[in-house]
Nucleic acid binder design. Structure first.
Lengths: 199, 199
DNA sequence: TGTACATCAGTGAACGCGCGTTCACTGATGTAC
DNA sequence: TGTACATCAGTGAACGCGCGTTCACTGATGTAC
């Protein structure tokens, strides 16, 4: 195969980015090699550098788009929930077994936050910008939507819960961690509801 | 250098393990190579296999001892605190800037939990056992010392807070994350104090 | 619209490098008498 | 306590492997006239 169309190239880049975020989340950045990535999308590794300047550049962009997409998907769930139930919907998804069992398709934060420190400055910055956005997008579903500190504490609890639930090798303990975090964070941050509207 | 004494060998193993936990926490498991580890303790890489069967075996033991030591040090702080202030002491240390800025010497959980999933079964199991112990050792300092689920939610919040505070590239945001988590977790889990004993 | 040429997406061999692990060897330590 | 020998902690060269990146090349796409 020689040169392809501009549209084809854009699609290749898109596929590369998508495959990369999934790989990074599942296997870590160090565990995801460019040759294997290119093989996965059915191309030879040499062409990687027609799309990204370096692995670092790919990592930075994968962090940014991966996080952004994840936040959007989560917020859409909150919007679809009945009034006052937004946070409940967020926590049910985020601290749920489906999310825990699918690191490749899940949120970038619990999957990659531990590695951010070891990436280049571009990747760290992208992560920071998107994490701040995450806090802002989620704040409207808190008891006090103005309380950015509460949003940060909530985010920490969400990420920490998924992190630990994925790390342990005992499924029962893992389920308990998820449930404990869900209940605690809901009690601490959900808006007060009239008694008859509580589930 | 040829054969050394049994005592010397035990000390070598100790130094190797200590250097390894620090390396793993700071650079990750994949980022810490055996040749470099051996060089750090002043030996040639060939002798590694006189001490551990494989890198995996080293990882498992490093997880276990690193976690155990970290929990003990933390609990000693809580014991040294005035009555009713144990959790305050724990959170001040754990969600403090000194801990954030010293991953190599800090808690294994925020530093390595994200990688546990990708290690061998022995390492995963060691982590699980020690995490459970962590929850049990910390529970006595909670409002309800019997509530193991509260201890798990607390642990998640602590690990998540350090994880995020280390990941972001903005020192102000990082400080805010630590403080927000400290305040939130204290309010949620600390025992009630008579008004005149509150700080 | 048709032709000539420049561009460049993708190819595949090659680079230097460090990884985890093995192994024949050295010589001081440990042990049996 | 002294001697002879077995043990084994540490050495250093070597292994096969996959990494990130480079580069001369191919031939279809894009463009200028």
């Amino acid at each position: 195969m020689a040169r392809t169309t501009r549209e084809e190239k854009a699609r290749t880049r898109e596929r590369l980015l998508e495959t990369a975020t999934r790989g990074f989340r599942a296997q870590g950045v160090a565990g995801t090699s460019i040759p294997r990535l290119m093989e996965q999308i059915g191309l030879t590794h040499g062409t990687f550098y027609a799309h990204f300047e370096s692995k670092d550049a790919l990592v930075a962009e994968a962090y940014a788009t991966g996080l952004r997409d994840g936040v959007e998907r989560l917020v859409r769930r909150a919007e679809a929930a009945p009034p006052g139930q937004g946070l409940h919907a967020i926590l049910a998804r985020y601290l749920g077994s489906e999310h825990r069992d699918d690191p490749a398709g899940g949120c970038v934060v619990p999957a990659l936050a531990g590695e951010v420190r070891r990436q280049g400055p571009a990747a760290r910055h992208a992560f920071t910008v998107e994490l701040r956005a995450f806090a802002e997008r989620i704040a409207p579903y808190l008891r006090d939507p103005q309380d950015q500190d509460a949003a940060l504490a909530l985010l920490s609890g969400m990420a920490g819960g998924v992190l630990l639930a994925r790390a342990v090798d005992d499924p029962q303990l893992s389920d308990r961690i998820l449930e404990a975090c869900r209940e605690h964070l809901l009690a601490a941050f959900a808006p007060e509801l009239p008694a008859h509207e509580r589930e």
